[in-house]
Simulated assay, not measured.
Amino acid sequence: MRVRTALVGSTALLVTAVLAGQAAAATAGHPGGGHSGTREAIRAAVEAGVPGATATAKDSHGTWSTTAGVGDLRTGEPRSAADRYRVGSITKTFVATVLLQLEAEGRLSLDDTVDRWLPGVVSGHGHDGRRITVRRLLNHTSGIYDYTSDDDFGRTHFLKDGFFRHRYDTLAPDDLVAIAMRHAPEFAPGTSWSYSNTNYVVAGMLIEKVTGHSYATEIERRVLGPLHLTATSVPGTRVTVPRPSGRAYSKLAETTTGPTYDVTALNPSMASSAGEMISNSADLGRFYSALMRGKLLPPRQLKEMRTTVKIDGVPNVRYGLGLMDTKLTCGVHVWGHDGGIHGSTSSAVTTADGRHFLALNFNADWTGEPAPVIEKEFC
Rank of each mutant, 00 (worst) to 15 (best):
L73S: 01
T75V: 05
G76E: 00
R79L: 07
R79P: 03
A81Q: 10
A82G: 08
R84S: 08
R84P: 00
R84H: 10
Y85G: 04
R86E: 04
R86C: 05
G88V: 12
T91V: 08
T91M: 05
T93Y: 12
F94W: 13
F94P: 03
V95K: 07
V95T: 14
V98F: 01
L99H: 02
L99K: 03
Q101E: 12
Q101Y: 01
L102D: 00
L102I: 03
E103F: 01
E105S: 08
G106R: 01
G106S: 02
L108W: 07
L108D: 03
S109N: 00
S109I: 00
D112K: 03
T113W: 10
T113M: 05
V114R: 06
V114K: 05
D115N: 13
R116T: 14
L118K: 12
P119M: 06
G120I: 12
V121T: 15
V121L: 15
V121A: 12
V122K: 09
S123N: 09
H125Q: 15
H125F: 06
H125N: 15
H127F: 14
D128E: 09
G129P: 13
G129K: 06
R130E: 12
R130T: 15
R131H: 11
I132V: 15
I132N: 12
T133C: 06
T133F: 07
V134M: 11
L137M: 08
L137W: 12
L138H: 05
N139I: 05
N139V: 07
H140E: 08
I144T: 10
Y145S: 14
D146F: 08
Y147R: 10
Y147F: 15
D150T: 11
D151W: 09
G154N: 07
R155K: 14
R155C: 00
H157T: 14
H157A: 05
F158S: 04
K160W: 02
K160D: 01
K160M: 02
G162P: 01
G162E: 10
R167V: 03
R167N: 07
R167F: 09
Y168L: 14
D169I: 01
D169G: 00
T170C: 02
T170I: 11
T170L: 06
L171D: 09
A172S: 11
A172W: 14
P173Y: 07
P173L: 03
D174R: 15
D174Y: 11
L176Y: 11
V177T: 13
I179S: 04
I179L: 15
I179M: 10
M181Y: 09
M181S: 11
M181R: 10
R182G: 12
H183D: 11
A184N: 07
A184I: 01
E186K: 13
E186F: 10
E186D: 15
F187A: 10
A188G: 12
G190I: 10
G190P: 10
G190F: 05
G190L: 11
T191G: 05
S192M: 00
W193D: 08
S194A: 15
S196M: 04
T198E: 08
T198S: 15
V201A: 06
V202R: 09
A203N: 05
A203S: 08
M205Y: 13
L206C: 04
L206E: 01
I207V: 14
E208Q: 14
V210L: 06
V210D: 01
T211V: 02
T211E: 02
G212D: 05
G212W: 04
H213C: 03
E218Q: 11
